[in-house]
Simulated scan of single mutants.
Amino acid sequence: MHPKDSISDGQPEPPVDAAEVAEAGEHPEPIVEPAVEPAVEPAVAVKRRPRGRTTLIIAAALVLGIAGGVATGYAVQADRAPTPLAALSQPGLAYPAKALPAGKEPDPLPASQDRRVRTDGDLRKLIVPRPKGWQEDKSLTALTQDGWLGVESYAMNFENEEYMFSDLLDQGLRRVAGTTWKKGEYRAADVYLVQFTSGAAAAAHAEDQRSYMPEKRAAGNEGTAIKGSAEGRYYVFPAERKAGYLPFYQARAIFSRGDVMVDIHIFDSAPISKKDIRTLAERQLERL
């Protein structure tokens, strides 16, 4: 029987002398003590403050701070004496103490110098006279009412009628006078005097139409300046061809004078010369 077997259960084994083991040539096995895990404390739930409440508190503090700063600044400024403004660099405007006596008022500008006097009258009378060889096109008089066009009738000349109708009203369109002529079987001409409530609106409408020409209809043609007009131009477009139809030629002149924008068109199945559209535009400009 092995000595270890003689030891009763529950009794401790005798201590082993390390020197005796070394002399016997045996190597003792290392005694490994079981690892003791540290006690883990139960996690404590942390309550978080709702973000909304914090945001409201900060916002309220900012509002109170701003209000307090404004009130303080107002109180400080109210106690100060007013600071006088610096003198104007220009001299004071002088007005007569009393109105001029009767008979000594300056004469009004003649119609030749006051453009508003000319255009406030019958606008139809300012349309250039019909050139020789042309006649009134009675087939299209349904679009006019004795020489006047409604906004919707004038807007029908544009591709996007609804947009142009709204845009003209927004720009302050006042009235439109127009006429239509024909010459031969296919040549026709339209002349429109489009009056606005201001000269700036008339110039803006003319500029809008000029900017549209090279992009859509003139194939890069920048047009030619109209003599006597600052920004006016006339255009001769290349023919539009479609199978089964005669070629379509068109020329157009656009300019403004005062509060009136002038829009002139010539149509034909044969080429249109620059002289035809230029002459008509120059005569209309002189008329205004």
Rank of each mutant, 00 (worst) to 15 (best):
L288P: 02
S6C: 04
T179M: 13
V260E: 00
S139W: 13
E240F: 04
S269W: 03
Q284M: 02
Y245D: 14
A61V: 09
A253C: 02
L169C: 01
L285N: 00
P84H: 10
E240R: 10
R80T: 08
K125C: 05
L88F: 15
Q195D: 03
F196A: 02
D170Q: 08
R287M: 15
Q90E: 15
R210I: 08
D259W: 00
E20P: 07
G133T: 13
Y74V: 15
A87V: 11
A253R: 01
A59C: 06
E207P: 02
L100V: 15
K125S: 15
A35R: 15
A67Q: 07
A206H: 01
G223I: 03
L123E: 03
K274A: 13
S256L: 00
R48P: 09
K98T: 10
D146Q: 14
T224Y: 03
L64K: 10
K98E: 12
F158M: 00
P106Y: 02
V194Q: 08
E286M: 15
G199T: 03
I264V: 14
E33P: 05
N157C: 09
A230L: 07
Q77A: 15
R174P: 02
A19M: 11
D5A: 12
P15M: 12
R118K: 12
F165L: 04
K125V: 14
P214T: 10
K138P: 00
T83P: 12
A243H: 14
S269F: 06
Y95W: 11
M213G: 06
A75H: 06
H27F: 07
A19G: 08
R278I: 06
L149E: 06
V117Y: 03
K227L: 08
